[in-house]
Design a protein around this nucleic acid. Sequence first.
DNA 1: ATTTCAATTGCAAAATTATGCATTTTTATT
DNA 2: AATAAAAATGCATAATTTTGCAATTGAAAT
Lengths: 160, 160
Amino acid sequence: MMKKKTERQLEIRKIILDGKVHSQEELLMQLKKKGFELTQATLSRDLKLLQVAKVPHPAKGYIYVIPGAEKREEASQKNRVNFLADGFKDIQFSGNLAVVKTLPGYANSIAAVIDRAAPWEIIGTVAGDDTILLIQREGITKSDLINALINVMPNLRDKL
Amino acid sequence: MMKKKTERQLEIRKIILDGKVHSQEELLMQLKKKGFELTQATLSRDLKLLQVAKVPHPAKGYIYVIPGAEKREEASQKNRVNFLADGFKDIQFSGNLAVVKTLPGYANSIAAVIDRAAPWEIIGTVAGDDTILLIQREGITKSDLINALINVMPNLRDKL
DNA sequence: ATTTCAATTGCAAAATTATGCATTTTTATT
DNA sequence: AATAAAAATGCATAATTTTGCAATTGAAAT
């Protein structure tokens, strides 16, 4: 009745979504605890089918994730983010620094969003009331940085 | 002058973004061809730092990707997608089928979006002019499917 | 029920990736 | 410039993941 496989993959999915899996062996244990019988080889194949990715996590070493499954939370945040982009006024460059001017009071929120997204191109930010200082990574060009910003706040696209 | 590392990682980034890397050895070759000298060990560490993920690809086996870097194209498509969600009218379930009713003419576009996203919960779709038939995977619940749809078109959230 | 074909899985080995440790290279300090 | 401290890297190996192949299991057809 070919149901074992489906059920198993469904369970794998759930476990992965909790974001606490560091290796296939570990996942295998959890599955066995829940009564599934299989080997790591089969698991590897399941993960391939489910397109489960192994991604480095700054703190936890490596974790397994399901790419498509962006959490609801993150999705709805995008609206807020795009709203904030309205506060953006202008950007100027000097060496490895970029200075962003915003409407009064917007600087901190926007900087927070950037920090949160932590684009690789930007090492860090400092924000006042209507100004944000972005320190960019060595070897990054202006357009790299602009792209990074657009990536964080799609709406900026039109204002740059 | 500690510049080699930065440059190298920058190059790694570029290569990965082209989406044609299947293994570290392969990437290593490309880097060497471009004049970088390093071992697989260092590369592994670089990838960890850059948070490069190894993800199964239906056709190509496995490819390395940079999670955060969603392509501009994809990002801007989201607007179109959310616009389409306006055409959504209603959804009904029967067994492992779901029937979506849309405004006249919307069915095909919406189905196309779903097909493209290819959520795991949905095996396939058939679309007429104002009706879409969704065939769901075995073992999936109604709410699983609804969540999958919301994942594809965030704006649906409010209409369900 | 028996046979046939395809799908699923385990086993064992190959392939790939991660890491401890020693060494080299950079950076900072005096 | 010399020395000390920190960062980066290679080597060798361990750990993990993937895969070819044979065996098993389930489904379909006669």
